[in-house]
């Protein structure tokens, strides 16, 4: 009964944590713009929080470099299962214009598994919201599989 309640609230009100991983700020401010009155993701029950241990969805912007890959892995490991990762922007997907730069590892998926890719340089707020919704559909599937196993 309690488990069902959690599963339902995970879908109806997902909590997201945003990690800037070497982006140029373009995608960050667009992610932040999602919170503001114009786009207001809180009307979908989506809450942006700072603590990865409370979060269901991780939004990562920007390229990964040799120093922040540890942080990224650390934040990802702290999140409880089941979790979703949304990579935002061209840099988060493949490395973008920076892919050949000396201190760049590449896209986010070189370090952690990514579920949804949001393209764009920077990704528009509409696209980012869409990406989170997409991630929720995947999350629902995961939950179903989890129930079948039992």
């Amino acid at each position: 009964m309690f488990k069902k309640f959690i599963e339902k609230s995970q879908l109806k009100s997902p909590w997201i944590v945003h990690l800037d991983c070497g982006s140029c700020n373009g995608c960050d401010i667009e992610t932040l713009a999602c919170l503001t009155p114009m786009y207001d993701i809180e009307r979908f029950g989506i809450l942006n929080i700072g603590n990865p241990k409370h979060a269901d969805v991780l939004i990562v912007t920007g390229t990964v470099n040799h120093r922040n890959k540890h942080i990224l892995r650390n934040v990802y490991n702290q999140m409880p299962e089941p979790k979703m990762v949304v990579a935002v922007g061209a840099c988060g997907l493949t490395g973008g214009v920076f892919r050949d730069a000396p201190n760049v590892v590449g896209g986010v998926d070189k370090v952690i598994p990514v579920d949804v890719y949001v393209p764009g340089c920077p990704g528009k707020p509409e696209a980012i919201i869409d990406g989170v919704i997409e991630a929720l559909a995947k999350l629902a599937e995961l939950q179903k599989e989890g129930r079948k196993k039992k």
Partner: peptide, 21 residues
């Protein structure tokens, strides 16, 4: 160092028009 990319070095492989981007 958490956002360092070293993009000044990209001038070696991108020409001066591409460097604008």
């Amino acid at each position: 160092g958490y956002v360092h990319r070293g993009l000044e070095k990209l001038a070696d492989i991108r020409d001066f028009n591409q460097m604008i981007q």
